[in-house]
Every structure is written in C-alpha cells, then in structure tokens.
Simulated assay, not measured.
Amino acid sequence: MSRSAVAVVNGRVRDGWEIGAGVSTARLTLRDESPLSKIVVRAPFTGAVRTDLGVSFGRTTRADVAGVGQVLVVGAAPGEWVVLGPIGSGIRLLGDLHERLAASGEFASAVDITHGRCLVRLHGPDARRTLAKVCGIDLADDSVPDGSALRTSVARIVTDMVRDDVDGELSYLLHCERSSGQFLADMLLDAGSEFGIEVTGFASGAATLAGGAR
C-alpha cells in the first residue's frame, strides 16, 4: 500500500493508496492530492515537445489522453513540465509521453515522480490570505491569474505553485519534495487557522483534475 508524506485521518485504501475519507464543508480546506500521478518532462525550452504539450513556462493547460483521461500540464520551469493525471494512471501516462517524446526527434525525458513528491490543494476564498502569511509573492489577480504556475518559497520550502481555481473559487496546488510534505501541510494549516481551515478527503482523480477546467 502506498502512503503520502502527509498523515491521513480516517483513512481508507483506494487504488493501492491510503487516502483521507472525511469530507469538510468549511470555507477554506486543505486536501492531500499526492496520490495523483505525476510525471516530470524535460526537453528544450522551445521546440516540438513544448508545442506538443501545448503550454509554455508559467502557464497550465488541460488535455485528454487516450486511456488515461484528463490531465493537467504545468509549465513548471524553462524546459520542464509536470503532468498530473488521475490516481493509478502513471504507467499509461508515462507510456504515452515516451511515445510523444520519441516522435519529437528532440533530446527529452519523462520520469514518474509520483511517490517522490507531495501535492496538496488549498481551496477557498481565504486561500490567498493564508498563503500571504508564508509566501512573499504578490498573489493578486493581475500578478498570478488563474492558470498561472510558478516556483517559489512557501514556508521556506521550494514549492511549485499552480493557481487552479475551481468553479470560480480560489484554489492553489502546491507541490514539493516528499521529505518536506508534512511540514508544508502543517504550516498551511497553521496559517489558515484564523480562517477556520479544515482538512478534507481526497476526491476522485477525474473530479480533482476536471474541477478547475477553464
């Protein structure tokens, strides 16, 4: 059984992962989405791979992959992308990406990092004010609009941040090394305590990735 770096409360097993089963209706929630499949792609900053993935540095897009479903493609850094897929889709997603990279004719790589990274979602109208306590970036709409991706320091941890609003409500995906995952979650819960933050359970992979579709 696979486990996230973040401690699970009221856990159950799904697709080989221990996940949280509780559901919160609080205005501000933190959800561990580490079970989502995560593939990092590295290729030239410009070229066939970037065109095929359909997104440049600092932005995100969604795509449908045959046999996998909807994925979120994140332009994480110059020449680096992170592709998030439904839980349990890592092998199929990696195979699809390897075929596409081979067809590009460029020097490129795709590696499954699902178990090596922590991924949480901070969701709700007070998400920006919560992050302001632990991150020095200006997260105003004109600086970091929906669909933005950046790498910054959150609670002194190097973190990939994606603004991925759900049904018009503020939502951020935060992605860091597994070893820092519990610390990041604890710091976000502490920062959001004055706003009544609660932990909520893992949703289905499809719903998680489709919820912020633009």
Rank of each mutant, 00 (worst) to 15 (best):
D15E: 15
R128N: 03
H175N: 15
C135I: 09
A43W: 06
Q70M: 12
A48H: 08
D138T: 03
L94G: 00
N10H: 14
V40C: 09
V8G: 06
L209N: 06
S89K: 06
E80Y: 04
L150H: 10
V162S: 11
L131D: 07
A103L: 07
R27D: 14
F57T: 15
D64I: 13
R163L: 12
V134P: 07
S179V: 14
D52Q: 08
L170P: 13
L93P: 02
V65L: 09
F45N: 10
G168T: 03
G205A: 10
G20P: 11
S204R: 05
E106M: 09
L53H: 03
S179Q: 08
R14H: 10
T46P: 00
G124D: 00
R163W: 12
E194Q: 00
S204L: 12
R12T: 15
F195V: 01
R151V: 14
L119E: 07
R129F: 06
G211R: 06
D165L: 09
G75H: 11
F45H: 11
P145Y: 10
L139M: 14
G79Q: 05
D138V: 04
P78R: 00
M187G: 01
V40H: 08
L189S: 05
I87A: 11
G22E: 15
G88R: 01
D112Q: 00
G95E: 01
D146W: 06
L30P: 03
D164S: 15
V55S: 07
H98E: 13
D142R: 09
S179N: 08
V111Y: 06
T200N: 01
G85E: 03
L36G: 10
C135Y: 06
G168H: 03
L173C: 09
V83Q: 09
V144W: 07
L84W: 12
R12W: 07
L209K: 04
C135A: 12
F57R: 09
L84I: 10
G168N: 02
G69P: 01
T152F: 09
